[in-house]
Design a protein around this nucleic acid. Structure first.
Length: 507
DNA sequence: CGTGAGCACT
């Protein structure tokens, strides 16, 4: 509540100036009409065009056709226009276009990339796992736009990374983390000694946690405390995610309980989500369910799915089915629909309830929902190759399948048993083995083995979580072929080396 | 005139 006496006592000269008039646009058709009018009026009004353009770029929901069209009608686009476009692409379903546009800006326009541009394009690299391009951008950051305030160019050239602005460094750390290059991320972090703020710390802690380097993450959090840098909500999430990935149940639970008292941050749904996952995965299903019911925040779809997935992992089908019935009875955001039904179908299938699974499938068809197919990407010499499950479209498909045959032969020598239970289809074992062998990450791996020199690290980015068979497969290959494999799945990283995985099979 | 920036839960 505002103190009205105090407000009344303020001299009127201190009143805030009225906000500058802004063109009010409420819908895309309105924006397009205004655009047409502005053009017809003859005088090209840069300011009006800018407003219309900004609106269409920000409200595009991924379709940036109009924004581009409008941008073309702006007589002399400035860096703000380019940056707005790049930002919109970097958040769109097709972030590669942010890089295309960046290249266009850098090569064909008099406008230079600046301190705003780099975080957007780095974000695109992070989302796509483009380490090659990300590294090149790292070098390019030495251009003026990314410099620290007060730094002179020759100082920056001498100590490039130290001259980076904190937010650019954070974007770099995040890019390296999400591209699987945790050591590079750490180097950037260690070298920004003067500019580290809570965001850089959090990005690094979250990165270490996602790579399964949980002790390092906690160490860093402690160092941060010693320097009296105040952690925020996201820092708390990163620390909890370190406990989660390490399976440190009591530590994580205690942290959640004491975080407000110790750090002044009230737990949010993300924090509860982390701990529910931690408890559920470790088999403490009752405690996890209890926590959801007792927490002061309304649980969302993510939280219920986390718990149900925990039931599936721990094979508690009674609880799973009870929770599924509960989930079905809830009014959910339609965004949750697809995720809910995919999970429910998986749970039924893994319990051998084929009829229920078929019904779930029908329901999805009726609602026009499509389960996203598994896809894996691998970067070779800066070019990205993407494989979809069962893919045979790649120009070198024949070689890839021949390589997979060779690998399977080797695995037979090792007495490797395919994890057939991971195939959630009502088919015979031969068909199951066939299905497993065409998972997208295996295709990407075979391609990587063909295309890179012996001993080279192989990095794979997957859109979903890997199945148990692919996980075991990667472990064996890392040993048999003497390759380190770094695989990003939907939520974390696995480093396979000499037959072991950094997650210690806890995921 | 200045607009636009980095890190978190399945």
């Amino acid at each position: 509540m505002l103190n009205s006496t105090l407000i009344g006592a303020l001299p009127c000269t201190l009143a805030a100036p009225p906000p500058p008039p802004k063109m009010e646009i409420n819908s895309m058709p309105e924006a397009l009409q205004l655009h047409a009018q502005t053009l017809k009026s003859g005088k090209t009004q840069q300011k009006s065009l800018t407003n219309i353009f900004t609106f269409s770029a920000l409200s595009s929901n991924g379709d940036l056709t109009y924004a581009r069209l409008i941008l073309h009608s702006i007589p002399s686009p400035n860096s703000f226009h380019y940056n707005t476009m790049i930002r919109a692409y970097s958040r769109s379903p097709d972030p590669i276009k942010a890089l295309h546009f960046f290249l266009y800006m850098a090569r064909n326009s008099p406008t230079r990339p600046d301190k705003f541009t780099y975080p957007f394009v780095l974000k695109s690299c992070a989302r796509l796992g483009l380490s090659h391009q990300g590294k090149q951008l790292h070098g390019a950051c030495a251009e003026t736009g990314a410099l620290s305030v007060g730094m002179r160019v020759h100082e920056v050239v001498k100590e490039q990374r130290i001259g980076l602005k904190a937010h650019v460094s954070t974007a770099l750390i995040d890019m390296y983390v999400k591209c699987g290059c945790i050591e590079s991320a750490r180097r950037v972090f260690d070298e920004i000694s003067v500019n580290k703020d809570v965001y850089s710390w959090t990005a690094m802690i979250a990165g270490l946690a996602s790579h399964g380097k949980c002790e390092d993450a906690i160490d860093l959090f402690n160092q941060m405390q010693e320097l009296s840098i105040k952690p925020d909500e996201r820092t708390m999430t990163s620390v909890l995610s370190a406990y989660r990935n390490a399976g440190l149940v009591s530590e994580g639970y205690r942290f959640l309980k004491t975080m407000h008292k110790k750090y002044g941050v009230w737990p949010t749904i993300q924090h509860y989500g982390c701990v529910v996952d931690l408890l559920a995965r470790a088999g403490h299903l009752s405690d996890a369910e209890e926590l959801i019911k007792k927490m002061p925040i309304k649980p969302d779809g993510v939280l219920w799915r986390t718990l149900i997935w925990g039931c599936k992992v721990n094979k508690d089908m009674n609880r799973a089915e009870r929770l599924i019935d509960h989930l079905k009875s809830l009014k959910m955001d339609s965004n949750d629909d697809c995720g809910n039904l995919v999970l429910i179908g998986n749970v039924y299938a893994s319990a051998g309830k084929w009829l229920d699974k078929a019904r779930t499938r029908e329901l999805m068809n009726k609602r026009g929902l499509v389960k996203p197919p598994g896809a894996s990407k691998i970067e070779i010499d800066g070019a990205v190759h993407e494989f979809i499950v069962g893919d045979s479209d790649h120009p070198e498909a024949e070689k890839i399948y021949a390589k997979l045959d060779e690998i399977e032969e080797k695995l037979r020598e090792e007495k490797y048993q395919p994890k057939l239970h991971e195939v959630l289809l009502e088919v015979d074992d031969e068909e199951k083995a066939f299905q497993l062998s065409h998972h997208s990450e295996k295709l990407a791996l075979a391609f990587g083995l063909i295309k890179t020199n012996p001993g080279t690290e192989i990095r794979i980015v997957k859109n979903l979580r890997s199945c148990e068979d692919c996980h075991a497969f990667m472990k064996v290959i890392s040993k048999k072929y003497h390759r380190d494999i770094i695989m990003r799945d939907r939520i974390r990283f696995h480093h396979f080396s000499n037959g072991e995985c950094s997650c210690k099979d806890y995921w």
